[in-house]
């Protein structure tokens, strides 16, 4: 693309208004991780969002609110009780990219291998947006289709609310890459809620080897109300991913991607279980 002008808003509302005014020519510059793939030669007006705030992580008691312009490096470095999202930040790209790219930049235009959507689906996050007014969209809805289309009218992502992990909850995240700086070939995130030695419920999501990040509802169903044991995880991981159309990329065949999915689900569940038991307040 070619940038023909730059407008620097002072508030989210001003950014939204300018984006609506400019229509298809508007381009938010906000730490996007997909710019590399935007090869459209059209002339655009850049709207850098560096003056509108929306940066930082705060805990409200029930959830952590992550400003849309929070760099991934800040997500990685943030530490608090019942917070697990830093694991995802740590595995995203490289230091240099984490310093520049933002949470919003990673989830406003979603590519199959994007890191955060998978975790946000599993964590049951909520996206806070600015349209005519503020409104909230659960992750399941937000990631049901390409968010960029939802935001095409100039709506602005303000924040992401990630629920605090309650007692007996655990989170696990797996990302398979060929080299550390490579895009994910398989991403799986899992959130378990235990009740004694049994799994009360689970949310499991996957990406990278799917056309779009998605919940693995069959896996979740196979886990619900089952004993939290390696055998349960193995069965859920093996049977629960069988019907999914896994897509291998680069040097992975589809068959291997399916195999890798089962292993990654199992590993993520193992990690979530360890997490849940460690947080058995």
């Amino acid at each position: 693309m070619k940038i023909k002008a730059v407008r620097r808003p002072e508030t989210p509302e001003q950014a939204r208004d300018w984006a609506r005014e400019l229509g298809e020519q508007a381009l938010y510059v906000a730490g996007g991780t997909g710019l590399h793939f935007m090869t459209d030669p059209a002339e655009m007006v850049a709207i850098p969002l560096d003056r509108i705030g929306l940066r930082g992580v705060e805990c409200s008691g029930r959830h952590y609110r992550i400003g849309a312009l929070t760099p991934l490096a800040d997500v990685m470095n943030y530490r608090a009780e019942r917070w697990a999202f830093h694991e995802t930040g740590r595995r995203t790209a490289t230091h240099q990219i984490r310093n520049i790219s933002t949470v919003g930049g990673n989830i406003c235009r979603v590519f199959p291998w994007c890191d955060l959507p998978v975790a946000l689906l599993a964590l049951e996050a909520t996206m806070v947006l600015l349209g005519d007014d503020g409104y909230a969209v659960p992750a399941d809805d937000y990631f049901a289709s390409q968010p960029a289309r939802r935001l095409a009218n100039g709506d602005l992502l303000l924040a992401v609310d990630v629920p605090v992990l309650e007692a007996h909850m655990g989170f696990g995240y797996r990302k398979e890459v060929i080299c550390h700086s490579g895009f994910s070939l398989m991403t799986v995130a899992a959130r378990l809620r235990l009740e004694g030695d049994r799994i009360r419920d689970a949310r499991v999501a996957a990406g990278a080897a799917l056309p779009f990040p998605a919940r693995l509802k069959q896996v979740e169903a196979l886990l619900a109300d089952q004993p939290a044991t390696p055998d349960t995880f193995a069965r859920a991981a093996t049977e629960g991913v069988r019907e999914v159309a896994w897509k291998g990329r680069e040097d992975w065949s589809d068959a291997y991607a399916a195999h890798a999915a089962a292993i990654a689900v199992r590993d993520a569940l193992d990690r979530a279980l360890t997490f849940a038991r460690r947080r058995d307040w």
Binding site: T94, C179, H180, S181, E250
Partner: peptide
């Protein structure tokens, strides 16, 4: 370099 997978110091 994205798709070729050359090892770097991170690896």
């Amino acid at each position: 370099l994205e798709d070729y997978h050359l090892w770097s110091l991170r690896d």
